[in-house]
């Protein structure tokens, strides 16, 4: 006889928790960013919406991440403080431009990267998708410092990554582990 009072199996516990899109947008504006250049990311859609709503930073939508790297360099060369908002797959799409512009020409290139497709109940390393698992190793291969945001308390890592990009005059990444709320 089945025990119908038995508890259902516990829901998987999230390893990465949702960070508020508004908090991310506020942090970006407070850091002094002038432009957010983006090929939009699903996981960061509430952050993009919050940036649009707040109107404290100019949004530039481009067709490819390669374009984003280029326009980021142009804005920097003209004295402004841009950043990029992309997803993991976008990073893979623009490695040559990352090398030739952000690294070789030494352009501060802060990238806020969403981990599109991540199963948030697993660690990054345990995720099935290579687009999730290989993001940090790829960045490391190119010597690009990265900072994880896995919990709400990690919000300060956005600023750390931003400051690091200006300190090393090159690319850095802040990786958002879960879809923003």
């Amino acid at each position: 006889m089945n025990d119908i009072t038995a508890a259902a199996p516990p829901a998987p516990v999230a390893v990465a928790e949702a960070i508020s899109g508004e908090a991310i947008a506020r942090e970006i504006a407070d850091m002094g960013v002038t432009h957010v250049i983006t090929v939009p990311d699903t996981n960061l859609k509430t952050a993009i919406a919050a940036l649009e709503k707040a109107q404290r930073v100019k949004m530039l939508y481009v067709c490819t991440e390669d374009e984003g790297m280029g326009i980021n360099a142009g804005l920097y060369m003209a004295g402004l403080k841009p950043m990029m908002l992309i997803q993991n797959n976008g990073l893979y799409a623009c490695i040559n431009t990352l090398k030739a512009i952000a690294l070789d020409a030494q352009v501060p290139t802060f990238m806020l990267i969403g981990q599109y497709g991540r199963d948030v109940t697993k660690t990054v390393e345990e995720n099935r998708l290579r687009s999730v698992r290989l993001l940090e190793p790829t960045l490391e291969t190119w010597g690009v410092p990265s900072f994880r945001l896995e919990h709400k308390t990690d919000i300060g890592n956005i600023r750390l990554a931003w400051q690091k990009a200006w300190e090393i005059v090159g690319p850095t990444a802040a990786i958002i582990g879960a879809p923003t709320s």
């Binding site: 390669d66 984003g68 841009p82 040559n96 431009t97 030739a100 512009i101």
Partner: peptide, 22 residues
């Protein structure tokens, strides 16, 4: 003058970024 090397396709957006802000 800024000459790109090894970033094929990248020049247009560098120029666009400059133009927008200057």
């Amino acid at each position: 003058t800024f000459l790109l090397g090894g970033a094929m396709g990248g020049a247009a957006m560098v120029a666009a970024g400059l133009a927008i802000t200057q």
